[in-house]
Amino acid sequence: MLFSIVVHAAPVQNQGADTALRFARAVLAAGHGIYRVFFYRDGIHNGSALSSLPPDEANIPAQWQALAAEHGLDLVVCIAAAVRRGMLNAEEAQRYDRSSSNLAPGFELSGLGQLVDACLQSDRVITFGGRS
C-alpha cells in the first residue's frame, strides 16, 4: 500500500513529529511504500538544518534526513508556511534578501499542490499534529 504522511507538529514541543517519524519507519518495515512526507504549518520546523540537541536527545530533522537518504523519500516542506516562519532554502533567501538559509539537505520547498497530489496518488494519507 502507498502512504503519504502529513506533519503539522514541530519537533521538541510536540510528540507528533517523533510519532510521524516512527510511523514512517513502521510503514516501510511492513513492506509498504511512502509516496511523500508533506510538512505543513509548524511542521515545517522538521526541515531545519540548525537543530542542535544534546547527544542523548533525538534530532528529528536529522532522523528524517537519514530515513529519506536510506529509502529515497520525498520530503516536501510547504513553501508558504516555511517562508512565513523563517525556513528558507538558498533560492528563497536570495528572493527575500535574507542573510542565510536554513532548510536541511534532503528537504524541498514546494506548494500546497504537492499535498493535493500526494492525496491523489496515495492509498492512505495520515496527518500527525492535526489538532495541535
Binding site: 505543513y40 504549518r41 508558504a80 508556511a81 506548494g111 500546497l112 499542490g113 499535498l115 493535493v116 497530489d117 491523489l120
Partner: peptide, 15 residues
C-alpha cells in the same frame, strides 16, 4: 486560514 488554503488548493486542482 490554513484549512481554507488547503480547501482552495484542492478546488484549484478541480477536486
Amino acid at each position: 486560514r490554513d484549512a481554507l488554503d488547503v480547501a482552495l488548493t484542492c478546488a484549484v486542482f478541480e477536486q
